[in-house]
Write a protein that binds this DNA or RNA. Structure first.
Length: 806
RNA sequence: GCGGAUAUGGCGGAACUGGCAGACGCGCCAGACUUAGGAUCUGGUGUCUUUGACGUGCAGGUUCGAUUCCUGUUAUCCGCACCA
């Protein structure tokens, strides 16, 4: 019989489906395990070979856990709101709902084709009103607790999407989605106070089993810096407050810089001698795009404010104040004290404007360049700080400032609040109405969900308003508080809203009364292992941790963190090593691979392709190797059908135990490639030495998480009872993984000369004698004397020889 | 500029805590079976001037012994990017 993958795969998928093999059971007595993948955005292009990489990986984990006796929740769903669907709908004159429905159907077919052990009864769709009802509910809770607020502010505006973007969505000054120009625009936006959670979002990372690069990237994005706020008196009477991480260098502050948007500048402006010049500078700065403003390596510009000066609180010296766009209005206090001796930017600026440069930490040459690498230096030219270390000086000056009421310790974050409004149609409506009398009023919980109305056109408007704003019938409503006339909020939520809590819904997907039932959340607790892309580290992963902490604070969830463990996969690149993309024409469609080789081969290859955490180029020839491997397994099983069952054969026992150990450990450590390599080695050994039915059964069980369809078929062929996916995971006996004899390397003066075979764990003297018996060693010994031997147990022996002295 | 990572055959990649570098797979070479082979099977395959020498980006160092540790350096990739 030939390995007919196509018939076999369909057959077993049907069996699994009918028997509900992969259904998770709420409240089951078995220990629970929650394995999670990032649910896909159902794009019009369908699945490509990048998708199955993380899915197969977590499917392997889920399958192994079931065999280990866990009640496994391994769910799937669709993150279906968002721009590509809306744009497609506009172009093809379809309703986004229809486009979504069609795309989801296509994705579902493709996912089922690959044999993932998802619980298909728990599918979640973020565009389903039964789902987004709870997204809206969470938003209302955030609003209720003062964590959602509307404010007019300069925001990132994508000129092509005609929509605002969160900071996290602007990449290199362009829109993350369409790569079009992002400009600054004043708009009134709903914001979420993620900054209120900045400290906890950093601190709680320490206790999580996240891969290090994820933690680092999140920490950098949140960007905590510790320093002090210091007030400088000014000759105009007002106080100028600055943030600095180096209060110890206060004696070296020879001028100040404030951002062109700074509030104080507005009050000073009428009395400035060079008013016109300053206004011109402000206007020029305002005209610049964010990209131009943040561009590095350009010369600093700025202008002195003539007619107002600041007073350095420690020296009492009057120092000039400048305005410059290198000082950002949105960070710290929007103003800095400049210490040109010890900051590159300040140094450059001071040189250009001829400002004094004072060395306050010894060790560099501040006439040549700023001495910035000075955390270990000694203070000079610094009055009462002289002679102190930088560290001590920081403490002393901070105390001094506090005593005088001039400043205090302060922690600042780079993280900004989350811009939460989008001027688009295909998203969750924000469930608030505006009443002239009552202000912003939440839609009562009983009226949720606020349904997305059918509109005449999904086109974005030229005024920058959401398409919903044109629906007068929908917009005009009554105020839930006073009953008077009111208007609905017409912006929708961003793409990231629905995905910020979806993993909770999987626990209890059909609950009509709560986003998740109390029993369900108590049982499933949180996600045990979450695998997803690095590109979501400062987007979805951060946002969902924020929402989860909020839900924890209001008593909905029992843990402060949603995910116990986070791993991340590398991208699948095109054949040439470029990113897979439609424009390059190098996209591999999984359907083609499944048609030609079968789903098991695709699953195996995508896991064998390389280190799971690194990017790997697709190879259409290498796939064949995995198909060949499965063919060989099939042929071996056919040959072994009528051989002995029961115990493993003596000749293969050690190898089988070693392979069980290797595969078990490798799966836990996301080393799927070497797990498969060890299975291949075992098959090679079986081919060479022969194998029994019992040996083959072990191989089939180990193979089943990787290639589940062929495993089921071979299990039956070998006379196994029940389903292979329901067999207990194999245990290994450490003692049996050890061979009786070891081949040791024999080195002479550190260079490999030969090998000797000796009993396992034997005495050093046995090894030495065996080595000295060896012909090659004897030859090398001629005219030499042995001065030292180094024996590494079960590994090698190194003989140190020296010429015999005459 | 800052932060993180990577560098190993023709290719994808292995190598535990410093202990036989190149597992496993692709490709390639030779042979077998074939009318045929882009099927299958068997054997071989780091390089070279091949009783041996040299080899893990480059230059040093520590060590009996280094892909692994240390110092310096180069290249590539990713993230952040005037964050005071």
């Amino acid at each position: 019989m030939k390995y007919d993958f196509s018939a076999i795969e369909k057959k077993w998928q049907k069996v699994w489906d009918e028997k509900k093999c992969y259904a998770a059971i709420n409240g089951d007595k078995k220990p629970k395990y929650y394995a999670l993948i990032e649910f896909p955005y159902p794009s019009g292009e369908g699945l490509h070979v990048g998708h199955p990489r993380p899915y197969t990986a977590m499917d392997i984990v889920a399958r192994k856990r079931r065999m280990q006796g866990y009640n496994v929740l391994f769910p799937i769903g669709y993150d279906a709101f968002g721009l590509p669907t809306e744009n497609y709908a506009i172009k093809n004159k379809m309703h986004p709902r229809e486009v979504t429905k069609r795309n989801i159907a296509r994705f579902t077919d493709q996912l089922k084709m690959l044999g993932f052990s998802f619980d298909w009864d728990r599918v979640v769709d973020t565009t389903d009103p039964e789902y987004y009802k709870w997204t809206q509910w969470i938003f209302l809770k955030l609003f209720e607790k003062g964590l959602a607020y509307k404010t007019k502010m300069p925001v990132n505006w994508c000129t092509s999407c005609k929509c605002v973007l969160a900071n996290e969505e602007v990449v290199n000054g362009v829109c993350e989605r369409c790569s079009c120009e992002v400009v600054r625009k004043e708009k009134s936006q709903w914001m979420l106070k993620i900054t209120e959670y900045a400290e906890r979002l950093i601190n709680d990372l320490d206790d999580l089993d996240f891969i290090e690069r994820v933690k680092i990237q999140q920490k950098n994005w949140i960007g905590r810096s510790t320093g002090a706020e210091v007030d400088f008196d000014t000759t105009s009477g007002g106080k100028l407050r600055v943030f600095t991480t180096r209060p110890d260098t206060l004696f070296g502050a020879t001028y100040m810089v404030i951002s062109p948007e700074h509030e104080l500048l507005k009050t000073w402006l009428p009395n400035l001698e060079n008013r016109e010049e300053v206004i011109a500078y402000q206007e020029a700065a305002a005209r610049k795009s964010d990209f131009e403003r943040t561009e590095m390596a350009k010369e600093k510009t700025g202008i002195e404010l003539k007619g107002v000066r600041a007073i350095n609180p420690v020296t009492g010296t009057e120092i000039p104040i400048f305005t410059s766009d290198y000082v950002l209005a949105t960070y710290g206090t929007g103003a800095i004290m400049a210490v040109p001796g010890h900051d590159d930017r300040d140094w450059e600026f001071a040189k250009k404007f001829g400002l004094p440069i004072i060395e306050v930490v010894k060790g560099g040459n501040v006439e040549e360049c700023a001495y910035t690498d000075c955390e270990t230096g000694i203070m000079v030219n610094s009055g009462f700080l002289n002679g102190l270390s930088v560290e001590d000086a920081k403490v002393k000056i901070t105390q001094w400032l506090a005593e005088k009421g001039l400043g205090s310790e302060k922690v600042n974050y780079k993280l900004r609040d989350w811009v939460f409004s989008r001027q688009r149609y295909w998203g969750e409506p924000i469930p608030l109405v505006y009443c002239e009398k009552c202000g912003w009023v939440p839609v009562p919980e009983s009226e949720l969900p606020v349904l997305l109305p059918d509109v005449d056109s999904y086109e974005t408007t030229d005024t920058g308003e959401s398409p919903l704003s044109l629906m007068d019938d929908w917009v005009n409503t009554s105020c839930p508080a006073c009953g008077g006339s009111a208007k609905r909020e017409t912006d929708t939520m961003p793409q990231w809203a629905g995905s910020s809590w979806y993993f909770l819904r999987y626990m209890d997907p059909h609950n009509k009364d709560a986003l998740v039932g109390e029993d369900a959340i108590k049982y499933w607790n949180r996600v045990d292992w979450y695998n997803g892309g690095m590109e979501h580290t400062t987007l979805h992963l951060l946002y969902s941790r924020f929402w989860h902490k909020f839900l924890y604070d209001i008593g909905i969830v029992p843990t402060a963190e949603p995910y116990a463990k986070r791993t991340s996969h590398g991208m699948i690149l095109g054949e040439g090593g470029d990113k897979m993309s439609k424009s390059r024409g190098n996209v591999v469609n999984p359907n083609d691979i499944v048609d030609e080789y079968g789903a098991d081969t695709l699953r195996l290859y995508i896991m064998f392709i390389g280190d799971f955490e690194k990017a790997a180029p697709w190879s259409s020839t290498a796939v064949k190797g995995c198909k060949r491997f499965l063919d060989r397994v099939w042929n071996l099983a056919e040959k072994a059908m009528n051989t002995a069952d029961g115990e493993y054969s003596a000749k293969n026992e050690a190898s089988i135990h070693r392979t069980i150990k290797k595969v078990s450990d490798d799966i836990e450590n996301v080393k799927f490639n070497t797990a498969i390599a060890s299975l291949m080695s075992l098959v090679n050994e079986f081919s060479d030495k022969g194998c029994t039915k019992a040996d083959m059964k072990a191989l089939v069980k180990l193979l089943s998480p990787f290639a589940p369809h062929i495993a089921e078929e071979l299990w039956v062929m070998l006379g196994g009872k029940g389903l292979c996916c329901e067999q207990p995971w194999l245990e290994y006996d450490e003692a049996k993984t050890i061979e009786a004899e070891k081949t040791l390397a024999v080195q002479i003066n550190g260079k490999l000369r030969t090998t000797v075979t000796v009993p396992n764990d034997c005495e050093d003297s046995v090894v030495i004698n065996a080595a000295l018996e060896d012909e090659k060693v004897k030859r090398a010994m001629e005219g030499m004397k042995l001065v030292k031997t180094i024996v590494v147990k079960n590994k090698l022996i190194n003989l140190i020889l020296k010429p015999q002295s005459p």
